[in-house]
Write a protein that binds this DNA or RNA. Structure first.
Length: 596
RNA sequence: GGACCUGUGGUGUAGCCAGGUUUAACACACCGGACUGUCACUCCGGAGAUCGCGGGUUCAAAUCCCGUCGGGUCCGCCA
């Protein structure tokens, strides 16, 4: 051959960046062929890379060789093109495309790699939604989709923003091990057999909690980490086995120092999507959140707040209410403004919904021009009806819902009914970012199952100073120096100030009935570390996947994780988990047995 | 562990509840042909599914029943 091989093409530009200002430039682009419109003569090919799409034009008269190649190009072929950016002829500008004012007239083209026909359309806005199994099986194709690429980009930008902020605040990013020690409390651990010590196991961290506290003793003072956390619990739309937290701990601080830093991080991250959230965030105590919304993570984007009706029905003859109040329970209601028109069927569904959360029943009252309409009105006196309607601010057209039960059931059932109605009645505004600190959680909770007191957060939480005397008299009343950050009803952040005083720590462990030996066995290293000069410290962790999910407007964290698992814990692309070679098991000193 | 929903060509659906005129329909994608300005290109033609799997009922099953597997949502669980 005497013919000279032309110099290989080298990428000069990205597709999505080309604008009218580039007209006249000769460019070389590389990417994936998205659509190929062959008009017999001229061929239009939409070329896509991660920056966007640009229209390439192949004219058989201008460049017959390139046109010849373009005829054979199919969806998702990887190609390189070389040509001149030109203005589109009048009337053919595409305003829906950022690059729609220009097109590239191709003089030379190469197929870098052919592709099989994809099992689903990659970037067709008009195509119906693709089955998620299929997307997960071919995740590398799914991730080519603009939406998914935007999610990955957003996640990257958010991580960068957080890191920049934390660096400016003089935090050190420190990595902690993935193979650590198993601790039975909390979530179920993922276990890893220790080959060098048959019969023993490592655990994958549920969070770096103990290690970051140790780093405080080590004098790191300000630590953070994008920490992978692993919990072997059932998955949900917002829960994967493995997830990412922005984990942080600070020495020589009080609660408000941690809250302020957290607000700064969140603010920096939210700016990535152009949202400037005002700080400081609103704060609400746990007690108030439970009283007003029946939840420790209230969605404050809409009303339907709880109203306590104990006073109204203090002397009622209505047995269902009277009995509950006599037993120390609560009667609480919400006013669903303008919802009196719900059908009988809808009301029944609502009651069934409340019952699925433990309520024995739910009374409803439609406010009509003739007064309250309800199956139970007849059990209430005239005065009670008036006081009830007034207390709830009832107006004609409203629907009043009342649950009488234990405080726990009222909160749970009425709280869920509130959320359900908020959605059903369209009360939830879009593009609203209600960040809310919920503070002063109880330190302990009564565990019905074990009939003893448990730590609500973890046993290294500091009780609030003013509640210290209660440790000896009424531990269940003790509030911890605990805080959660809630965004639109989602728990995003959880943290606490930790105990650094030995006397308090011992008392706390005593209350949750954890004998010293057990403490030594499980967290001995931390307890020991604390004996060598632990600074006062506290911290928190941000649920990064959830935050990105909410920022991206996605319904599941699977859509902001590159390679997520299905809700039954399977990786459909890799086909994990699988059985392993018996030799691997033998190395680990493990033997499988039938599940009994 | 429990409840509910779901599975039909490569993809998304219809058909299922009232079993048989269905040779399982439609759209997109795919393959071939035509077409020089489209961008959901258009037009013509073609190929492609024994209906998740197994069993049962019936003269006859995508359709009814039982079991099973995969997927989703929720409850339990997630300090």
């Amino acid at each position: 051959m005497t013919e000279q091989t032309p110099a290989p093409l080298r990428r000069s530009d990205t597709c999505g960046a080309l604008r009218a200002s580039d007209i006249g430039r000769t460019v070389t682009l590389m990417g994936w062929s998205q659509t190929n419109r062959d008009h017999g003569g001229v061929i239009f090919l939409d070329l896509r890379d991660r920056s966007g799409v640009v229209q390439c034009v192949f004219n058989p008269l201008e460049a017959p060789a390139a046109h010849e190649v373009a005829q054979r190009v199919r969806s998702e072929f990887v190609i390189a093109v070389h040509g001149v950016v030109q203005p589109r002829p009048a009337g053919t500008v595409n305003p829906r495309l950022p690059t729609g004012e220009v097109e590239v007239h191709i003089s030379r083209m190469e197929v870098l790699n052919a592709a099989k026909t994809p099992p689903f359309p990659i970037n067709d806005d008009n195509a119906p939604e693709v089955d998620e199994n299929l997307r997960l099986r071919y995740r590398y194709l799914d991730l080519r989709n603009t939406r998914m690429q935007q999610n990955l980009l957003l996640r990257h930008k958010a991580a960068q923003a957080a890191r920049a902020y934390l660096d400016a605040q003089e935090f050190w990013e420190v990595e902690t091990p993935l193979l650590i020690k198993s601790t039975p409390e909390g979530a179920r651990d993922f276990l890893v057999p220790a080959r060098l010590r048959a019969g023993e196991f490592y655990a994958l961290p549920q969070s770096p909690q103990l290690l970051k506290q140790t780093l405080m003793v080590a004098g790191v003072e300000r630590y953070y980490q994008f920490a992978r956390c692993l919990r072997d619990e059932d998955l949900r739309g917002d829960r994967q086995f493995e997830f990412t937290q922005i984990d942080l701990e600070m020495a020589f601080v009080e609660r408000d120092d941690v809250l302020t830093v957290t607000e700064g991080i969140i603010q920096a991250i939210m700016r990535v999507i152009g949202v400037d959230v005002p700080t400081p965030f609103l704060r609400m105590t746990f007690v108030e959140a439970m009283a007003r919304f029946g939840s420790d993570k209230p969605d404050t984007r809409f009303g339907l707040e709880f109203v306590d009706l104990a006073g109204v029905f203090a002397a009622t003859e209505f047995k269902a209410f009277a009995a509950v109040l006599a037993a120390g329970g609560q009667v609480k209601g919400i006013n669903a403004k303008g919802a009196a028109g719900l059908s009988r069927r809808e009301l029944d569904d609502l009651i069934a919904y409340a019952q699925s959360f433990g309520a024995k029943g739910m009374a409803y009252f439609q406010v009509t021009p003739e007064g309250l309409k309800s199956p139970v009105t007849k059990f209430l006196s005239e005065e009670e009806r008036t006081a009830f309607a007034t207390t709830l601010g009832a107006e004609v057209g409203d629907l009043l819902l009342v649950i009488a039960d234990t405080p726990h059931v009222v909160a749970q059932a009425l709280g869920r009914v509130r959320l359900h109605l908020g959605e059903k009645l369209g009360l939830i505004p879009e593009n609203t970012w209600n960040f809310l600190w919920v503070v002063d959680f109880p330190m302990f909770a009564w565990n019905e199952e074990t009939q003893q007191i448990d730590a609500m957060h973890h046993p290294f939480t500091m009780p609030k100073a003013e509640d210290l005397p209660l440790l000896d008299t009424d531990p269940l009343q003790v509030r911890g120096d605990l805080y959660d950050l809630v965004l639109n009803g989602n728990e995003l952040v959880s943290g606490s100030i930790r105990v650094h005083r030995r006397d308090i720590q011992e008392r706390v462990l005593e209350i949750i009935n954890m004998p010293l030996e057990q403490v030594r066995e499980r967290f001995g290293f931390l307890v020991e570390a604390f004996e060598y000069g632990a600074p006062p410290h506290g911290g928190m962790a941000i649920g990064f996947d959830r935050l990105i999910m909410l920022m991206a407007g996605e319904k599941t964290i699977r859509d902001v994780i590159a390679f997520p698992k299905t809700s039954s814990g399977a990786d459909l692309m890799m086909d994990a988990p699988t059985t392993v070679d018996p030799l691997q098991l033998r190395d680990l000193g493990l033997q499988l047995r039938k599940r009994g």
